[in-house]
Amino acid sequence: MKLETHNKNAEFYIASLALGILEGMKQGVLSSEVGMWSLARPSFSNQVLKSTMISDDLKYIVGCFDEIDVLSGFDGGEVKQKQMIDELKEKCLRCLQMIDYKSIDIKMTSSINNE
């Protein structure tokens, strides 16, 4: 599957995806490893982190996804993990509140290749 959108829409889609993954992790539906391999995967996170179109807050969020997984391996890590998830969810919501939805074209094209 391939999803494409204009770069100017990236903040909306990435923040929305991050918020959904974080909520899934908080609810226990998704493991922290899922978060790490979705948004913290180097081929994705490196592009986000060097983008001039992505806010610093969203770069911070993406950069923290691997840290969430690491916390699970420490004593008391589950509490710290939940605190970090809540902090990142708040940052995602702030990112989404800053978007001027009237000025962007929220369209996405997709294709599924069954190979």
Rank of each mutant, 00 (worst) to 15 (best):
G24H: 14
G24F: 11
G24S: 14
G24E: 14
G24T: 07
M25P: 02
M25L: 00
M25H: 04
M25A: 06
M25Y: 11
K26Q: 09
Q27C: 02
Q27P: 02
Q27W: 07
Q27G: 04
Q27L: 08
G28Q: 03
G28K: 05
G28V: 06
G28S: 05
G28P: 03
V29L: 13
V29T: 11
V29Y: 03
V29C: 04
V29F: 08
V29E: 11
L30Q: 09
L30N: 12
S31P: 01
S31V: 04
S31R: 01
S31G: 11
S31I: 00
S31H: 01
S32K: 14
S32H: 06
S32R: 09
S32W: 07
S32P: 01
S32N: 11
S32V: 11
S32Y: 15
S32L: 09
E33Q: 06
E33K: 15
E33I: 06
E33M: 12
V34Y: 02
V34D: 04
V34G: 03
G35F: 00
G35L: 03
G35I: 01
M36T: 05
W37A: 02
W37V: 05
W37C: 08
S38V: 15
S38W: 01
S38T: 15
S38G: 10
S38A: 14
L39S: 10
L39A: 02
L39G: 07
L39N: 09
A40F: 04
A40P: 04
A40H: 06
A40L: 00
A40G: 02
R41L: 08
R41P: 03
R41K: 15
R41G: 01
R41N: 10
R41T: 10
P42M: 03
P42L: 02
P42D: 00
P42V: 10
P42H: 10
S43V: 07
S43A: 09
S43E: 13
F44T: 12
F44L: 09
F44I: 06
S45W: 04
S45C: 12
S45D: 09
S45T: 13
S45V: 12
S45Y: 02
N46M: 10
N46G: 00
Q47G: 12
Q47F: 13
Q47E: 15
Q47W: 14
V48R: 01
V48N: 05
L49N: 09
L49I: 15
L49W: 04
L49F: 13
K50H: 03
K50V: 05
K50F: 05
K50I: 13
K50Y: 06
K50D: 13
S51F: 12
S51A: 13
S51V: 10
S51D: 12
T52N: 08
T52Q: 15
T52G: 04
T52K: 11
T52V: 05
T52R: 14
M53G: 14
M53A: 15
M53L: 15
M53K: 08
M53T: 12
I54E: 05
I54N: 02
I54D: 13
I54G: 05
I54C: 00
I54Y: 03
S55K: 00
S55F: 00
S55N: 00
S55D: 05
S55Q: 00
D56W: 11
D56Y: 06
D56A: 12
D56T: 07
D56F: 03
D56H: 09
D56N: 15
D56E: 15
D56G: 10
